[in-house]
Each structure stands twice: as C-alpha cells, then as structure tokens.
Write a protein that binds this DNA or RNA. Sequence first.
DNA 1: TAGATTGTTAATCGATTAACAATC
DNA 2: TAGATTGTTAATCGATTAACAATC
Lengths: 230, 230
Amino acid sequence: MHASSLPLPRPLLERLAAYHQIATQHGELGNVSIRSGHLAALLDIDPTLVRKDMAALGVVGRPKVGYPISAVLPRLDHILGLTDRKNAILIGCGDLGSALARYGGFSKYGLQISALFDADEAKTGRTIAGLTVQPMEKCRRYIEIFRIEMAILAAPAGCVQELADWLVARGVRAIWNFAPVHLKVPVGVVVRNENLALGLAQLLHEIKRTKTAPSLAEAPEPTGTRLESA
Amino acid sequence: MHASSLPLPRPLLERLAAYHQIATQHGELGNVSIRSGHLAALLDIDPTLVRKDMAALGVVGRPKVGYPISAVLPRLDHILGLTDRKNAILIGCGDLGSALARYGGFSKYGLQISALFDADEAKTGRTIAGLTVQPMEKCRRYIEIFRIEMAILAAPAGCVQELADWLVARGVRAIWNFAPVHLKVPVGVVVRNENLALGLAQLLHEIKRTKTAPSLAEAPEPTGTRLESA
DNA sequence: TAGATTGTTAATCGATTAACAATC
DNA sequence: TAGATTGTTAATCGATTAACAATC
C-alpha cells in the first residue's frame, strides 16, 4: 500500500480537475474516447502537455483515436482523491451556505455534508437539503462523536478565524473556507481559502488585458521586470 | 496611455490577489506597513518571492519596517483591475445565484450586479439584494440598452452552454460561470469557469497527501514521471 | 552600532514546448 | 497506404530560490 506524496503542483492539479470535468461531459455526449487535441483546445494549452499528463497518469491512448474515457476518469478520480468518501460539516447557513449544502456536485466527488450548523437562532431548525440546521452548541459534541475531520465555513468574515481555531482545537484537520478572509491554521491542518474575489480579479484582469492589447506592433517591453510602466 | 498586456501568469495573479486580501486585513488591524516575511509565512512561500513581486509592482519598502500598505493596495487594485467599475447581469437565481447577488465582496472590487434574471417563473418577481428577478424575455433588451458586457451564470448545468452562446451573440464579452460545466466560448470572449469541484479536489488531494506522508524515510521515487505507482 | 529587513543578481529548478519517431 | 494522433526525448523558457549587498 505505497502511496507517494508528491505535492502535485497547482497548475497540474487544475489541469487534472479540468480534464475530469471535460472528459465527463464528453462521455455523457456518447463518446468513448477523447483526444489530447480536444482537451488542449478547450483549455488553451499545448496538446503535448495533455499527452504528457496522460502518460504521467498511466493512461495509454491510441493514435488516431485518443484516450479511452473509461480509463481516464478512474485514474483522475484516484489521483484527485475523489473516490475517498469524506464527511464534512457545514457552518454558516446563509445564502452561500445553503447553496453549498444543496450543491449536488459535491457528493458526486465523494464529499458528504452530514450536518449543518449556524450561530443564528433564526436559522436553526430550518431544513436544507434534508438536513436540519443545528445550533452551534451542538457542534462540539457532533465533531467528537462522529470524528469529523473536515468543515466547510460559510460564516461571516468577522468570526471565521475564531471559528477555525476552535474547530482545529477540536480535531478538525481540513477547512474549506468561503468567507473572504485568509485563514491561518497550524501546520498539519489543511485549509483552502476559496476567495471568490480572486476569481473576479482574474476575470477582470483578463478583460482588461484583451481590451488594451489591440495592436500587435506595440512598442517592445523595455526588458525590465516591472508588471506595468507606472 | 500605454497599457502593457502581459498575460500575468496564474500563480502570480493568485499571489497578488492573496496579498490584497491579507494586506487589507492587516491594515484593518491598525498596521501601516506589512513585511514580506509576514505575507510569505501566510502563503507558505519564500519571502524573496514576495519582495520580487513588490519590486515588480513598483512598491518600495523600508528595511526593518516593511511595505506601506497605503502603497501596496492601490498598486494591486490597479494591476488586478479592481478599480474599473464594471456592470454585470446575473442569470440564475437559485441558492447559488442568490448568494452571489447578496455577496458583499464584489462591489468592493468594482463589480456591480445591475440586474437579475431567471428562466423559472416561480422565481421572477422576487427581490434579492434590492433587485427584482426578471424573466429571461427581458434579458435581451436589457443587454442591448445598457450595453452589458459581463454576465454571471448560476443557471443549471444543462442549459448554461446554450445560454453562454446566446449571450455572446448578443455582445457579452465576459462570462463568469458557476455551473459545473466547462464552457466553450469564441476567442475574444473571456470566460472563467469557477468549478467548485476543483477546489474540492485540491483540498482532498492535500488531505490525502499529508495523511499518507508520515515517514520521511520513504523509499525514494524511481525517477520516473509517473504521478503515482499503479 | 547591531540587527533586521529590503533589494537584486545569479543559480537552480521545474514546467512547457519543440521535434520527431512510433503506431493505429 | 496516407494521415492523424500518440509517445518521448531534448531544448527552451520562465519562475522560484539562494546568496549577498544595501539600507534603515
């Protein structure tokens, strides 16, 4: 049971997740295999890179045909850890929290939201996606009893760091944070700060870039490292 | 009015957005400046890299003090395009759409959601975040009149590609897609596929990695390129 | 001053791309 | 067969890190 622990670089991980999404869609359209050129075109990357990734995944393709989707998806599932069933609690049941609780996409990837909590009494008792929103007082015991290791935070930005500290102290080892705050956690705890504004920034930047780059015969960059002339 | 059009690499863009978030928080705590070491520790990167980024941004720091937040934030605002005011429409007012409409974080970054649409008659007429949900029939005219260039899609996965095509044909140039589908758009149109499952995949992978890497004296990797032994 | 931190060049490292052979 | 596509090595490119000087 050897499990290598290469910290897959971010861009690679993003590609793999995108391959998964695209291959799934492609398969649902009735296709049996998928070409490197197809994936590459959709992701705007070099086909060679896709082939290299496939080789690294251990998937073998056939010239003129492509890679069998039935081989690609399980490999991606495995590498991405989507097969390991995982229970999580969700804290904060406002709009975003409710959306996440109802979001069908997670269970497909092995994530089961097993309980909902909210500090706001007005929200407790409500049922979302078949689960009753519980008061925070019950959270502690729930974590202990079910040995919860993962929490999804959709609570207000102001209290989310405190909440995270509290969860970590109670044994939670992975936090998926949707509040627009950068959480600090001790080593050994995994955190992902979702930061929607980051996505927005990327989009805005891209828009700006494509708009202000009409002429190909622009004055060549003075070979500095400045991101932009002041 | 020279605007260089360097396609800022993804990791850099992510760092910049994270700097923005952290520097903002740090400033709200009453600090006037921020150190490269502080940013580096939070992001788990090398301090040198932060300093290089700051230099590229054109921000000068002071030894023993750090970088003035009042200089850092405006530069980041500008590079990330957060200062350019931008109107967008939001299509799909389920839980996720509602959450996005109410999400306060966007307006702070220059994004104004100016209208909501939904194909479901049960949802039209409702008011979310001060805006009335309008039927899709009104969407076309709205785009034309207000020359909308950006759309946020929180519609069901099944119809979102068709929707995107339709929007692009009507002049929309940027799409922020929250449906778990990889959208294809013509060149010249900017799309960001938000893909929440990707975030999940990264988190799961990280969990898996840290869990299965207890011994440092593991058998050395056979110097292949395989992501994992089969 | 001493010490911490910034600034910057050079070295390293790794990821992407180019080229081309192999295969269906 | 011809043509398209995979597979793989070598070359390139760019990003990160190391080292150290400069500065408060």
